[in-house]
Simulated assay, not measured.
Amino acid sequence: MKRNTILLILVIGALISGGLYYRYHGEETDERGATKLMQALEHEEQLTKETARLIKRSDDVNERDLAGQTALFYAARHAKDPQAVRNLMAAGADAYITDNEGRTALMNAAQYNESVAVVEELVKNASHVNLQDKAGETALLLAAQNNTADVIKVLLRAKANPDLAGPDGKTPAQELAENKKLTDEEKADYRQAMLVLSILQPQHLE
């Protein structure tokens, strides 16, 4: 009888453990490998209690999806409130992690996120503003192609190098021409600013 009782307890324990693992891990991952935390950050316009709770509960905020991206990448792309980034960093998020394409969370923000506050928070927590991904893109190149003047300004103030050309040989100043979020005046102003910074580059990059 004792042996049967012990076996029963072990079976029940295994079932409970398996169920809890599935509850907290298995069902949190979608077909992209994105956890519930990543999914919450993906749909967040501003910081919510649910996201903060998921960050606090996460066993590993540096867990990666199938593309090699962490929760910080999702916050960098979608969050409008920099507190989401702060909470992730406080929980141990690594801003130096690169995904399968060699990109950082800062690059994600530079390409997709118009929130100056989020970009500033990422810049403040990472000194790799001039890192190039596997294709040769930098945060400044991605911002010059896709983002607003204010985001470009943040990166230039963070000493982003305007002379680093992308895979097509174009510099950030040249990439401005195709950016539909900039007015002609902004394109001219930032092209001129990048030219000046290029001339003053040794001082600019100190």
Rank of each mutant, 00 (worst) to 15 (best):
M1V: 07
T5G: 02
T5E: 13
I6M: 12
I9A: 15
V11K: 04
V11S: 13
I12Q: 11
I12P: 10
I12N: 12
G13Q: 10
G13H: 08
G18K: 08
G19R: 03
Y24I: 01
T29M: 14
E31P: 01
R32L: 14
G33M: 06
G33T: 04
G33I: 07
K36V: 01
H43V: 12
E50K: 13
T51P: 03
S58N: 10
D60V: 06
E63N: 09
R64T: 14
D65S: 04
D65V: 02
A67E: 15
Q69M: 13
Q69D: 06
F73W: 03
Y74G: 00
A75S: 02
R77V: 08
A79H: 04
K80I: 00
K80S: 08
K80C: 00
K80P: 00
Q83I: 08
A84W: 02
V85S: 04
N87D: 14
A90R: 15
A93Y: 09
D94C: 05
D94P: 03
Y96F: 13
I97H: 04
I97T: 08
T98R: 14
R103Q: 15
R103N: 13
T104Q: 11
A105Q: 01
A109E: 06
Q111H: 07
Q111F: 08
Y112S: 09
N113R: 09
V116L: 12
K124D: 11
K124I: 02
K124F: 07
A126Q: 09
S127G: 10
N130Y: 06
L131V: 03
L131R: 09
Q132Y: 13
D133C: 03
K134D: 15
A135D: 14
G136V: 09
G136S: 08
T138K: 08
T138M: 10
A139S: 05
A139Y: 02
L142Q: 07
A149R: 13
D150E: 15
V151H: 10
I152W: 03
L156D: 01
R157P: 00
K159T: 13
A160L: 04
A160V: 02
N161R: 04
L164T: 05
A165Y: 05
P167R: 11
P167K: 12
K170Q: 10
E175C: 13
E178S: 14
N179K: 09
N179E: 11
K180A: 13
T183V: 03
D184R: 14
D184V: 12
D184S: 14
K187Q: 09
K187Y: 03
M194F: 05
M194S: 05
M194Y: 05
L195T: 12
I199V: 14
Q203R: 14
L205M: 14
L205N: 13
